[in-house]
Amino acid sequence: MTYNLIKNNLKIVIPIFFLLILLGMKTYFSSNMCSEFLRINYIKDFQIYLTGKTDLPQLKVLICHGSIIEQNLEKEYYLVLFSKQIYFLFSHIFLILSALVMKFLKFNNMEYLFNLCLYFIFINIIFNYPIGLNFFNELIINHLIILFVLTLPTKVFDV
């Protein structure tokens, strides 16, 4: 029965499987090589400055995204590791590509929506945003837009 359930929902199970593997790898490597993450250490009302100016290689920047580089208790701010390039690549370029792949593989609307949400959660976790209402940020709008635009070819509209 479980086998049949998995077999019938491969378009949902496989992405979850990949997501879990990626998150597992991310957790394993980050625990070994990164300093503390902001989401664990944040003090209320401290200001946050993001910076990509670092000598670290890009792979390490990716794994340690969101870790604290500097904490200033006097001036009440954090300096946090953040790469504009990597963030843009994941949150925009890969997002469009994954949407196109799903369209190509003829995912139905529910599978499509589910996978986009999964991707959206993945982006939030990979960049170390804390879990909370902030999941509903700008990215979800982009997900929805892509979803609706890609379902367009069946429709003709009057203006």
Partner: peptide, 21 residues
Amino acid sequence: SLLHAYEKYYKLIVNDEIFVL
């Protein structure tokens, strides 16, 4: 847009590093 956040709700990240296309 709804902002990316580190704190309650969608707190603004002050130095405009995150670009949303």
